[in-house]
Design a protein around this nucleic acid. Structure first.
Lengths: 216, 216
DNA sequence: TAGATTGTTAATCGATTAACAATC
DNA sequence: TAGATTGTTAATCGATTAACAATC
């Protein structure tokens, strides 16, 4: 089964799935029971052909002439993403962004469960933020071993990125979701997902210039 | 000149430029004066061929056998992105994420300057957050006209996305950077850049599963 | 049956990769 | 000159688009 790994749709498709899920969960609350790829596409803001391919990637099956059963489509996407069971995670770096992520309740329905937060600043350590106590970085290693944590979200300044990544790797973390504006190097069995908040801002300005020039 | 619009590198390239800029500014502070595409690539965590193409897109010129002059490369990237002059912007939605974005000083060096913040909650209106006073949504339209604001960052819940987008459009906003987990529809002369914070989390989990299965 | 939709195929498009001639 | 690097070209790869046969 491991050799049957998915090669359809790819990374761009995976990144669109959460948007579909948001639409589908919303429609389910409104009592809808089935949906077509075309209808989902319109509501999610993506071309229908793309939506079809993305759904195919998750392995969900629809009914010809009818569409997809909402419940099973939601379940199949969640299962494909691994959002059907919780991933306990550490959050490192309690600045503005770290605090915001910790307070975003939506993550729980995405299988992301913050169990502890860490910071190097003694002023912040000891506080309780969004129901989570902030611990000193020195406690991270022991706690991760004790709790079996494999996932961490990193919201630290650029200079701290590599040292903190090293600490996380030493603590046995295998998945790092990094919002630090810096590249980090890690062993091959550790996956780093790097977010660059400035990327979207850059794209917005260039795209809007293209529209202004009439070439978009 | 407008017909000579850039078609090399494309959107993925544009999204990588901020990371290059971060590296370059840092190296400049350390006193470095020139850099090669290979060296930049290693520090930014991207393949050298990609970096070369992306630099080409900005129009920056290097010296064969030497590399790029740091000052002029920074200036050319900033100018290409439009980050060399400030864009005054409104922020709508003072929840956790809105507060965090407002407090992120890095944006100022990216040409993003928050001049006012808005929220619908009377509890929040009137407060001063990160030096910016929070105003009621009702004041947005007049103020945008008076100040000539064309750019807005939207950090509101999904149900508020379309109504707030409509309000922004009516107020003459032409660029919307949206963190709301919902699609919005706007006229053709308005550009919406949608960020989905969950996309990266989805990608991290799927990629890490691929690594675990030995197929990555 | 008639209408609608899935699942899939083929064609197009764009991004990435690799290589190297020209240049300092 | 010898070594290094840019700028560019060609080849590869993957994603998107469009179309439609099969199916309910």
């Amino acid at each position: 089964m491991a050799s049957m790994s998915v090669r359809v749709g790819g990374l761009p498709g995976i990144r669109r799935l959460p948007a579909y899920l948001g639409v589908l969960r919303h429609l389910r609350e409104e009592g809808l029971e089935t949906i077509s790829a075309t209808s989902l596409a319109r509501r999610a803001g993506h071309p229908a052909a793309v939506v079809k391919k993305d759904i195919e990637m998750t392995g969900a099956a629809g009914k010809t002439g009818v569409g997809y059963e909402l419940d099973s489509l939601v379940a199949d996407i969640e299962s494909f993403l691994g959002w059907n069971n919780p991933h306990e995670a550490f959050l490192v770096g309690m600045g503005n962004l770290g605090t915001a992520l910790l307070g975003y309740d939506g993550f729980r329905s995405h299988g992301l469960d913050f169990v502890a937060a860490f910071d190097s600043d003694p002023e912040i350590v000891g506080r309780t933020v969004h129901g989570v106590t902030v611990l000193p970085l020195g406690k991270l290693r022991n706690l991760s071993a004790r709790m079996g944590i494999r996932t961490a979200v990193m919201t630290v300044p650029a200079p701290a990125a590599q040292p903190v990544a090293d600490l996380l790797v030493a603590a046995g973390i295998k998945r790092i979701w990094s919002f630090a504006p810096a590249a980090v190097s890690v062993p091959g069995d550790v996956v780093v997902q790097r977010e660059d908040l400035s990327a979207g801002w850059a794209e917005l300005l260039v795209r809007s210039r293209q529209v202004e020039n009439g070439s978009g």
